[in-house]
Every structure is written in C-alpha cells, then in structure tokens.
Design a protein around this nucleic acid. Structure first.
Lengths: 144, 144
DNA sequence: CGATATTAGTTACATTTGAAACCATTTTCA
DNA sequence: TGAAAATGGTTTCAAATGTAACTAATATCG
C-alpha cells in the first residue's frame, strides 16, 4: 500500500514547491521576475558570458524555457547578449547594470531564506542532511 | 555570491523533478496518466470514498487541478463517483475495477523506485535524512 | 425563520509549459 | 572537399496550470 503523504517523491515535491514559492515571493512582486527568469539571472550573474545552452545545463532547465526567459530579460533590459566569435550560432550572456543591481538585491534575501531554513537543523544534522541529499541526487541521476 | 548548484532550494527542485520524472515514466507511457492523475489515483486508492476537496488537501494540489484530473479519470473510466448523502454538493470518489488494477500495477513500481533510492543511504543515515526532511518541511510551512 | 457567509465543485480566460519542427551554423568523416 | 550528422537557438502548436468568477448546496447567526 502506498501512503502518498509518506512517499519520498511526493514529500520532496511538496517541500520543493513550498520553498520555491516562498523565495519567489521576494522577487516576483518586487521585480516582476518568474522563477525561470530569476534562475537565468542567477546563472549569468555567477558565470558571466555563458551561452544559453550552458545556462540550460547548469540550471537543469529546458533550452526552450531558457530561450524564452532570455528573450524576456533582453526585452526588459536586464540581460545583454554579445556574439561569441568562436561560434556564430552561440551568443554570450551578461547582466546589464540594471540586471546586476537586481541580482545583487535578490541574492542576500535568497541566502537569508536558505539560512533560516537550514538553521532549524543542528550543524551536524545539517551537514549530514546535505550530504545525503547529494547522494540521493546522484542515485536519481544514475537511475534516470 | 550565490552558487545556484549549491543552493538548497535549487537542489531540492532538481532532485524532486528528476525523481518525479523517473517515476512518471513508469505510468505515463503505459497508462497514459499525468502526474496529477496518478496522484489522485494514489489518494483515492488509499482513502476510498474521499471527496475531491479532501484529495486536494491530502495531495497538496489545487482544487481546480483535482477537478480536472477527476473529470479526465471519470471519462477514461478509472474513477467512479457517488453521492455523499450527508452533503449534496460533495461526491465520494472510488477507483473503478480498471482504476484499481492500474493502481495496483503502479504502486509496486513506485515503491521499488523509492526503495532503490533510499537504499543508497545507510539505515541510520536514511532515518536521519527523513527526519531532517520533515523538520525542514515544517520550517518551510511556518515560513510561508 | 431568513439573510449572509461559507463550502464543494466547475467553468472561463490568460499564462506557462513541453514536444516537435525548424533555421543557421559547425562538425564529422568517407 | 562535401554530404550527412550534430549543435545553438527560436518558433509553433497543443496541453497543463493558476486565478478569478461562477453555481449549487449548506452552515451561521441575528
């Protein structure tokens, strides 16, 4: 018999949605960003000059989703795009000044949220938890 | 600086999607079910006679999503619906014979998948992990 | 009792999402 | 070389989803 409330995939899904929505509230209203857009900003902020495909890989997002988020962010002026000379199909992505400002405004709030959550675990417990999470992620990848 | 790959909300989201998609593969093709539909079947299988609203609560799903999943499942004959005499607005949901058969075919595969994943953790580690997960879920709920 | 608020469930509309087809460019390799 | 395959990125179409408004039935409370 399967008890959905105890079922790991279900529990992870609920927790993940809850947290994502919790954080999203800090930037949806204030900056009009969707979760996908925010993720693109986070990746480009961390790795300036990445291509859309690399963003998709790093963010585990669909390349169509990235393409759409990028074009919205170009429209709203948060992102800039320059040719990658080695390959004329690809373009390098950078945060604009405004994009950088938004990035820098969101990051502390996001980290604070994460910090708050992880604070509910003792340091040792937290270390173990993150470690187990990593191992599960690897197992899930193998299994996929 | 924020390193998305190390950021807990992001890691949970990736892991959760990976696992959900992994399991979904066992019933999407074979039975043409979506994740939502499968969740409704799982809840109704576990609690025969629940109402749609109760399903929504137990599955942490939107009531609109439940309503739509239920109507598809009624159309495809996997679900039956009978009046709840105490309240003529609500209807009780049950698996049909076919729905029950599908339920019984999926559950072992789902549990096996979960089991495989959790096997990568030592029993003690697993216990701690699930415990921490529960505490995080509570913290996230408070925070929300 | 009866007006008002609440609840179960559905419908309508706009937005998001995913799969597949699609260019343009680059790579591969006979 | 040059034909076929692969890659970066966009577009298109159908399906999934969220929000708000809606109907019908029940609960609340003066």
């Amino acid at each position: 018999m399967l008890d959905l409330e105890q079922f790991l995939p279900y529990r992870l899904s609920v927790l993940s949605n809850r947290i994502s929505n919790g954080i999203a509230r800090t930037y949806e209203k204030r900056f009009g960003l969707s979760v996908t857009e925010w993720r693109v900003i986070a990746i480009v902020g961390r790795y300036p000059g990445v291509t859309a495909t690399e963003v998709a890989e790093r963010a585990a997002m669909d390349k169509v989703a990235v393409s759409r988020a990028v074009s919205r962010l170009l429209d709203s002026g948060l992102l800039e795009r320059h040719d990658k000379h080695a390959d004329r199909r690809a373009k390098r992505l950078y945060l604009s000044a405004e994009g950088g400002a938004i990035h820098d405004a969101i990051v502390p709030a996001a980290l604070a949220y994460e910090h708050d959550l992880l604070e509910t675990l003792e340091p040792e417990e937290r270390r173990r938890f993150l470690d187990s999470l990593e191992r599960l992620a690897e197992a899930a990848e193998r299994h996929a």
